[in-house]
């Protein structure tokens, strides 16, 4: 656990001290503004949170509840970025709990680099990782995230992507996928080596308000660990196809 945190802290120190981070110097101070009042406040901070998945999944084998959300706070260039996801199985066990605290820096037209800490906290054993990744809008309006994790247990990677297909301007079909890779298996958490798990969905949402959109869909998840018993450890992560419904919301 410690080993995961130290490189991550180092990384953040490097990023913060680098010219990359250098907060835009306020050159306008070369002018003497009356009472120091800025005629335009273009450095405001904004707070937003997006609960992308907040859903029930049903299949013949039972059901589960899943959420996946992000929140951020900050300016155009520098943000504190939080991510969290998790699944509650029919047996009430909280699994797949993945929580990240990241420093986010805008680096290009559409992409931000993010670095920080990932904590796997649920009813399984706790793990900590350093995290560094990219998040943004790939060409053709693909939302994409690619994150690299490292700890004393090895390295891991996550790819997520989604795309909005506008059936109408309010009825939106969204294919989405998340893939997790690990360099080493972690039996206690049901993590396999290589491509460990996949979670993908096809959701049809209706934005009756931009910020609140109910949806229905089909999700498919699978874990590729040799020992399928591990699934039990994290709460009956019903692999296979699920009928899904939920609400996407943000502020």
């Amino acid at each position: 656990m410690k080993w995961g945190l130290i490189p991550s802290a180092l990384l953040m120190a490097v990023v913060y001290s680098s010219p990359l981070h250098a907060a835009p110097m306020n050159k306008t101070m070369a002018v003497s503004y009356v009472n120091g009042i800025m005629p335009v406040m273009d450095q405001r901070v904004y707070v937003h949170a997006l609960l992308d998945q907040f859903e029930a999944r049903y299949s013949g084998a039972g059901g589960q509840f899943r959420y996946d959300g992000q929140a951020w706070f900050g300016s155009d260039y520098n943000k504190l970025w939080l991510k969290s996801e998790g699944t509650v199985g029919t047996d009430g066990r909280f699994g797949d709990g993945d929580h990240e605290i990241l420093y986010d820096r805008a680096i290009s037209r559409y992409f931000d680099v993010q670095s920080g800490v990932r904590l796997d906290v649920d009813q399984g054993p706790t793990r900590a990782w350093g995290a560094i990744g990219l998040q943004g809008l790939a060409l053709y309006f693909f939302d994409a995230e690619a994150t690299f994790y490292f700890s004393d247990r090895g390295v891991a990677g996550r790819l997520t992507g989604s795309y909005d297909i506008f059936i109408t301007n309010r009825l939106i079909l969204q294919p989405q996928a998340e893939l997790n890779f690990y360099s080493n298996s972690d039996s206690a958490r049901g993590v396999g080596r290589g491509l460990s798990d996949i979670d993908t969905g096809l959701r049809l949402r209706y934005e009756w308000h931009r910020k609140i959109a109910p949806y229905i869909g089909i999700t498919y998840s699978n874990m590729f660990h040799e020992n399928s018993n591990f699934r039990g450890n994290i709460g009956k992560n019903g692999s296979g196809a699920n009928f899904t419904f939920g609400i996407r919301s943000w502020f």
Binding site: P24, M25, N26, K27, T28, A30, V31, M38, P39, V40, D42, Q43, D76, A106, R109, Y110, L137
Partner: peptide, 20 residues
């Protein structure tokens, strides 16, 4: 400007980053 990030400016800089 960048419509995705909703930042606008002159010569690639917003007010607070630019010389008068």
């Amino acid at each position: 400007g960048n419509m995705e990030r909703f930042i606008w400016g002159f010569n690639g800089k917003k007010f607070s980053e630019a010389e008068p």
